[in-house]
Design a protein around this nucleic acid. Structure first.
Lengths: 388, 388
DNA sequence: GTGATCCACTGTATCGGTACAGAGGCGGAT
DNA sequence: ATCCGCCTCTGTACCGATACAGTGGATCAC
C-alpha cells in the first residue's frame, strides 16, 4: 500500500494523470513490481525471494512466493534477467550447412546429444545456430548466447565470423581453432593409421581409401593422395591412412566423393569395385560409407570379408547393425562431449575473469585430443590368397 | 560532440564529478550511445541504422556503420533487444529425459534436424531444453524463449509444466497436446494396422508385436494387449496393430521391453524367438527394434524372411542399411518438421495478436496428422508353409 | 550504557536496446 | 506568401530485471 502509486511505483513519474488511459494499458503484465506492491515490500526484496533466498527471512519469502503465485507471476523474466546479469544461460552450436543433413548423420547427432548431456548439469541450454544467414536474419549475430561450439564447419562460415566478432568464447570441435580459442579434436591421424595397420597385418597389399571432399565437383581418384579432403577431419583422417600405406611400402590410392550420403557413396563404391585394379580392402571415412561399400560389394557378388575387407570409422549405431558388423574406429562421443563442455565452461570463466579487474592472462586455451580405438568385427579378414 | 557529457550522454545524470573514477569504468564497452557520440547523432538514429535502414538517409547510415566498425561495435546487443522487443528469436525443444539417448535415436534426430531446417528461414534458432531440472537450475523456467515444441515426452515433465505456466505458445509433437495447444501427430494407428495387414496378406497367422514401455520394471508379455505402452506413440502404434490382428480373427500377443536400446531389444527378441509358440512374424515398434530382432533371429539360426518376417517402423537410415533391408512404415520427417514449424509460427502470430488490441479469437489450434506409408523391402515374406 | 556487528530490507543506478510521438527543414500546391 | 506533407532525425519513456551500497533496528560484547 505504501508505494501503490502506479505500475512502476518505485520510479518517479511525470505527474500527468490519465496515464496510459486506454488501449495500451499493460493490464495482464505481472512483474516484480506488481508482486512487490501487493506484498508491500520493495522490488528488490521480491527479486531476492526468487533468486537469492538467503537474503531475506523465510517467513517473508513464503509470503512473497504466495502472493506471486496468486498473481500468476511465474518468475523473473529471462530476457530482462539476461540483460541485467549479462549472461543468458545458453550456448550456441554451429553445425555445417543443412541441419537436416547434420542430424541424419549419426556422428553429429551423437556428439550433439553428448554435449547436451554434459552441459545439462550446468543449467545451460544448447541453441542450434544455423551456419548461414537467411533473408537478412543472421542468427549468429542476433541470438543471445554466452559462448558457442563450432562443430566441423568449413571454418569460414558466416556464423563463425559473427561469433568471433562478437568476442564470444568459442570452442572448435573437429576443426582447427581460431587463434585464442580452445579445440577438441579426435585423433584422426592415428585412426587412419590403425585402420591401415590392421589391414596390412591381415596381409592386404591393395588398400584404397574412400573419403569425402565437398569441394570437388566430380567424384574421382585423388591426383595427389597427400592433398585430399575439404575439411580438417577428412584431411587428417585420410592423411593418417595414406601415411601408413606408404610406410608399409604400398601405393596409396584415394577416392573422393562429395559426402556421406547414399547416392554419392554408391557411386564411389561402384568406381572402386569396378576398377581394373580392384583392391582387396577399403578404408572408409565413416561407417556410413563403409556400409555403402559393403552393400555395393555384395550386390556385385563379392563376399565381405572373404573377397573384400572394409573398415569404417566412428563406431556409430550402424556399425553393429549392419551385416557383417563393421570393423571400425571407435570414437568416444561421450568423452568428446565432455571435453567440449569442459572447454566451454573453462572459456566462460576465463571470459568472466577478463571482464573483471584481474588482468591475469591464463594463457592460450588448450587443445584436447580424444583417442580412437580399433574395434575389429566381421567386415575385415585375411587378404584373399589369390591376390598378390 | 554535442552530447559528449558522459557514457550515457542522453540521460540526465546526477552531477557529481569524478563519476566512476576508477575500477568500474566500462572502458571496453561499446554501445549504441558510444557510436552515437562519435558520429554526433542520437542513439535512436544509430539504432535505426542497424535495424530500420529505411528510417534514415543512406549517406548517414554509411557513416554510422563506418564509425561502428571503427569502434568495433558488432550490432545491437541481443539480450537488450530481446527485452525491448519482447521477443528473443528462439524456440525451445523439449526432448525426453537424456538428450544423449535422444540423439542416438535416428527418429528423434531426424525430426529435430527437419524442424531446424524448416525454422531456419524464419531466422529463429532452436534451443534444446532439458526436460528436467538439475541443481536448482530449471532451464524451462529460466531460458528466454518465444515458444516451444514438446516432443514425445511423458507429458507431466517439469519442463512442460513450467513452459505452460509461462504461457508460451506450445506445439506438441507425437504426444497428446495440452488444451489450447497445437499438435502434430503421426498416423500411428494406421501404421500399426498396415504392418499387420501386410503380414496377414502374406499368410501369417502368428504375429507378435514388440513394443516399448518405460513404465514397466521388467520386460515381458503384456497381460492385456489393449493396455500397453507408456506414451502416446507406443500406445497408439501398438493399438493399431492389435486391432488389425484381432480383426483378422487372430490372437494378439504383445511383448514389452523398456526401450529401444540394444540390450533391452536383445532380451525381448530372445524371449519371443525362444517362446514355445514361436510366431512367424514380428511387428516392431521401431527400425531399431526390428534390426535387433533380425540379428537375434539370424544368431539363433533362423532365416529372415524365410523363417521369420520382421516389420520395422520409421524408415530411418537403419532400415536400408541393415541386411536384409527392412520392410517398414515410413514417416515423413520433413513433413513432420514442416508441420511443427508451421504450427509454431501460427501459434506465435496468434499469441502476438492476443497481446495486441484485437480480441479476435481464432479458435482452437489445429491438430495435424501426418500419414505413414508401408515400404516393403526384404525382411518380410510369405509365411513358412509348415506353420498353420 | 554504548559502540560494534549483523540481519533484513530498500533505493538508486544501471544493463543496452526499442517504440512512438514529435520537431525542423524543405519543396510543391494553392 | 502560406499552408501542407514528407523525409529525417531526436527525446522521452519504457522493457523487467540485478548490483551494490546503504539504512535502521536488534543483538552482543565490554
Amino acid at each position: 500500500m505504501s508505494r501503490a502509486d502506479g505500475p512502476r511505483g518505485g520510479t518517479v513519474l511525470p505527474d500527468y494523470a490519465g496515464w496510459h488511459a486506454e488501449g495500451g494499458v499493460d493490464v495482464g503484465r505481472v512483474t516484480l513490481q506488481t508482486v512487490a506492491d501487493k506484498v508491500g515490500v520493495s522490488r528488490m526484496t521480491v527479486s531476492n525471494a526468487f533468486s537469492r533466498p538467503d537474503q531475506l527471512s523465510a517467513g517473508l519469502r513464503t509470503q512473497i512466493l504466495a502472493a506471486a503465485a496468486e498473481l500468476g507471476y511465474v518468475g523473473p523474466d529471462p530476457a530482462a534477467r539476461a540483460l541485467a546479469r549479462r549472461s543468458v544461460g545458453a550456448v550456441g552450436v554451429v553445425l555445417t550447412d543443412s541441419l537436416g543433413e547434420a542430424f541424419l548423420d549419426p556422428v553429429a547427432s551423437a556428439f550433439f546429444g553428448a554435449l547436451a548431456d554434459e552441459l545439462a548439469p550446468t543449467g545451460m541450454a544448447l541453441s542450434l545456430v544455423p551456419a548461414d544467414a537467411v533473408g537478412g536474419r543472421v542468427p549468429a549475430r542476433d541470438l543471445a548466447l554466452d559462448a558457442a561450439v563450432i562443430y566441423a564447419c568449413a571454418g569460414d562460415t558466416d556464423a563463425v565470423e559473427w561469433l568471433s566478432r562478437r568476442c564470444l568464447p568459442l570452442v572448435f570441435v573437429d576443426q582447427a581453432p581460431l587463434p585464442g580459442s580452445a579445440a577438441v579434436l579426435l585423433d584422426e591421424r592415428s585412426g587412419g593409421r590403425l585402420a591401415v595397420e590392421h589391414l596390412a597385418g591381415l596381409g592386404h597389399r591393395d588398400i584404397v581409401v574412400l573419403t569425402m571432399n565437398s569441394d570437388r565437383d566430380e567424384p574421382g581418384w585423388a591426383r595427389d593422395p597427400h592433398r585430399v579432403g575439404s575439411n580438417h577431419v577428412s584431411r587428417v583422417r585420410t592423411a593418417g591412412a595414406v601415411e601408413a600405406i606408404e610406410e608399409a611400402g604400398l601405393t596409396a590410392r584415394v577416392y573422393e566423393v562429395y559426402d556421406n550420403r547414399d547416392r554419392y557413396v554408391a557411386d564411389g563404391a561402384a568406381a572402386i569395385l569396378g576398377d581394373p585394379h580392384r583392391p582387396t580392402a577399403v578404408v572408409c571415412f565413416s561407417d556410413l560409407m563403409a556400409a555403402g561399400v559393403v552393400r555395393a560389394a555384395e550386390e556385385s557378388g563379392l563376399r565381405v570379408p572373404d573377397d573384400l575387407s572394409v573398415v569404417g570409422f566412428d563406431d556409430s549405431v550402424l556399425a553393429r547393425a549392419v551385416r557383417p558388423a563393421l570393423t571400425t574406429l571407435r570414437q568416444d562421443f561421450v568423452a568428446k562431449g565432455r571435453a567440449a563442455a569442459h572447454a566451454l565452461t573453462e572459456a566462460l570463466t576465463a571470459a568472466r575473469a577478463t571482464t573483471g579487474t584481474s588482468p591475469a592472462e591464463p594463457g592460450e586455451p588448450a587443445t584436447v585430443t580424444i583417442p580412437v580405438q580399433l574395434v575389429v568385427r566381421e567386415s575385415t579378414g585375411p587378404a584373399p590368397s589369390g591376390s598378390g
